[in-house]
């Protein structure tokens, strides 16, 4: 069984070793624009006065992304943050942040702005970005202010815009519970066309 979760729930979650030490907490979720696979996380310190850390956590080093903590074997599995954040991502952080980016269809219609990103953690221990929670514009024609928009297998995104196929707006879900089915239906629909 796979689980869907919002990245905002993952951010700030403690990173705990099997020795019961909370060595850090999640700061940013880093994913690749290609397949949407989550490559890893940047970390922040746990202390009241501690800021971002120079270490990062690659997805392969994560034992479990649980509802209350991110489990790792021990503190040696962390890597340098530059390995997580590819050199091409502009330094300074906000360059590639998709939170607040505008959602555009490939036909050039603005659907809204990204308020959250939905992750799917599967049984086979993969973690993918499968959709955006979007603060909807009028073009979507929905009555609720926030909707879930499914993503295709491949997508393009920058800190400025995220692109979705025009068909995505026909597969909008209004709650996270129904979203898993919406993603499946949407991807199946895309395959049918191709």
């Amino acid at each position: 069984m796979s689980r869907l979760m919002r990245t905002s729930e993952v951010i700030g979650r403690p990173v705990v070793t099997l020795n019961g030490q909370d060595i850090a907490q999640i700061k940013d979720v880093v994913y690749s624009a290609g397949g949407g696979a989550v490559g890893g996380f940047t970390l922040a310190g746990r202390g009241l006065f501690s800021g971002p850390l120079k270490q990062g956590l690659s997805w392969s080093a994560v034992m479990a992304l649980g509802p209350d903590a991110v489990m790792i074997r021990d503190e040696d599995v962390v890597s340098s943050v530059t390995e997580i954040l590819d050199a091409s991502v502009r330094p300074g952080g906000s360059g590639g942040n998709v939170l607040g980016s505008e959602v555009l269809t490939d036909t050039g219609i603005l659907l809204g702005t990204v308020v959250d990103v939905i992750l799917e953690v599967s049984e086979r221990r993969t973690c993918d970005v499968v959709g955006y929670e979007v603060s909807a514009s009028e073009a979507l024609g929905t009555h609720s202010a926030k909707v879930f928009l499914p993503l295709p297998d491949t997508l393009s995104a920058s800190g400025e815009h995220v692109m979705v196929p025009a068909a995505a707006k026909d597969f909008v879900a209004h709650d996270l519970a129904g979203f898993g089915a919406a993603v499946k239906a949407f991807r199946k629909n895309l395959e049918g066309q191709g």
């Binding site: 951010i11 979720v29 624009a33 922040a44 590819d86 091409s88 991502v89 590639g96 998709v98 920058s158």
Partner: peptide, 22 residues
């Protein structure tokens, strides 16, 4: 200051994109 330091984001690594596959 705390909010600025701790605020998290979702960073897309655009070195790998449909136009630039791995």
């Amino acid at each position: 200051i705390q909010r600025r330091r701790r605020a998290g984001g979702v960073i897309v690594d655009s070195s790998v994109s449909p136009g630039n596959p791995p």
